[in-house]
């Protein structure tokens, strides 16, 4: 899908957020960017979304196709819904910004809400929804324009453990079924190991790629407690300890 080629990012205040990052995101990949706070993983995600520009290096899209409005779905750490709009109106926002009428976007909005299991909550306002449901609306909003690339910035970090597990399972299922490319920022080893098929481990100050770990555990019902998952968590933990001695 895209190649990150020797990308560095230095902020105007002098902070070197990223240094010489090179990696690839293949079409259909689920890449987890894993690292401690301050390792620049969110910055890298913002660079991919073109919300920031790299100081040097470049991000090349396969076929030279630069994604335009609505071709990248972005999910933030908070649900960041418009409090005055219903769930359906929030999900519709990306389409509305591109001038698509309410009637025309209705099927896509309902499909996106159904994808996250909120078909019955189209008319609910954010304040009437739980934290997990708000995040689901936020994910539906990112999916509504059918982007090929979904960027997620620690979307489940603020949720309780039970809700987080449910959302992780649903996201993994959604990725399996839709074949979308996902880049997922997290600071949780367990989350990265559970969700991704490739884990990019980053080390902080300045942000560098410390290791890349392939993660292909079969999607069985007992995935979260399977021997493969436990072994992967162990491998990632050891890698992190090796690159970041305490």
């Amino acid at each position: 899908m895209l190649t990150v080629d020797a990308v560095s990012k230095r902020f105007p205040n002098g902070t070197q957020a990223l240094e010489a990052i090179s990696t690839r995101v293949g079409a259909g990949d689920f890449v987890a960017l894993l690292g401690p706070s301050g390792c620049g993983k969110s910055t890298l995600l913002r660079l991919l979304a073109k919300l920031e520009l790299p100081t040097s290096g470049q991000i090349r899209w396969d076929d030279g196709h630069e994604p335009g409005a609505g071709e990248i779905g972005f999910v933030f750490q908070d649900a960041t819904l418009l409090p005055w709009a219903t769930a359906a109106e929030n999900v519709r926002l990306p389409l509305r910004l591109r001038g698509i009428s309410a009637g025309e976007s209705r099927p896509a909005v309902m499909a996106a809400l159904a994808q996250v299991g909120l078909a019955d909550f189209a008319d609910a306002r954010p304040r009437g929804l739980s934290g997990g449901m708000r995040m689901r609306v936020s994910i539906a909003r990112a999916l509504v324009s059918s982007p090929a690339l979904l960027l997620m910035d620690e979307p489940f970090a603020a949720l309780d453990e039970f809700t987080r597990h449910r959302l992780q399972e649903d996201l993994r299922k959604l990725w399996r079924q839709s074949g979308k490319t996902v880049v997922f920022v997290t600071h949780s080893i367990y989350e990265a190991a559970y969700l991704a098929n490739r884990i990019v481990v980053m080390s902080p100050r300045p942000g560098r790629i410390a290791a890349e770990i392939a993660a292909d555990i079969p999607d069985t019902p007992d995935r979260r407690v399977s021997a493969g998952y436990v072994a992967l968590v162990q491998e990632v933990t050891e890698t992190l300890r090796a690159v970041m001695p305490v």
Binding site: A69, F76, T80, S145
Partner: peptide, 26 residues
């Protein structure tokens, strides 16, 4: 205005007026 919402509007190619009337004013 929450910066993440401003980012969201930018990502979706919102115009200045859309950002003003649909986000910043409300």
């Amino acid at each position: 205005t929450p910066s993440e919402l401003l980012d969201l509007f930018r990502l979706n190619g919102a115009t200045r007026w859309q950002t003003l009337f649909w986000l910043r004013l409300p």
